[in-house]
């Protein structure tokens, strides 16, 4: 029985894992790489949309504009029903406060528990106050 079972799943072990295990594996790559996996097959088409781990880095993009468009796309295409466990946001350069606020608002409205924001910029950037008023962050 064991052998039969093994043969039938031998072809693609990764795809046969449950969604939550695939999410955990993909939590170790950026959300960009996770979105890219959607081209693989119907099984992978929407897996990323229920990822509870979001890690955005502007390093994956040539310009901040492309980065911000990507983030907006991810937030609007993501399954709104699924809570967010952690958000990791890293950017280099000047982004608008509204952009940061949009991500933070999304995170808080989805009960985020861990939040990491890394900003590399010469000038002072003001962050919205909301992190300090969140109830879900642990």
């Amino acid at each position: 029985m064991g052998d039969r079972k093994r043969v039938s799943v031998e072809g693609d072990r990764l795809s046969s894992l449950s969604d939550d295990l695939i999410h955990k594996i993909m939590s170790f790559v950026s959300i960009k790489c996770a979105v890219e996996t959607s081209v693989l097959s119907p099984r992978w088409r929407y897996i990323w949309t229920s990822m509870p781990y979001l890690s955005f880095s502007s390093n994956d993009f040539h310009t901040l504009r492309k980065f911000s468009n990507f983030v907006k796309h991810v937030l609007s295409s993501r399954n709104n029903q699924i809570e967010v466990f952690y958000v990791d946001l890293a950017f280099r350069g000047k982004v608008s406060q509204a952009f940061v606020k949009r991500i933070l608002d999304y995170a808080f409205s989805h009960n985020v528990q861990q939040l990491n924001v890394t900003c590399l910029h010469d000038k002072k950037i003001e962050l919205p106050l909301s992190p300090f008023s969140s109830r879900s962050i642990s």
């Binding site: 990764l14 594996i25 939590s27 790559v29």
Partner: peptide
């Protein structure tokens, strides 16, 4: 192990 598999993907 997740890290190992993720590195394979990356």
């Amino acid at each position: 192990i997740y890290q190992t598999v993720a590195d394979m993907i990356k």
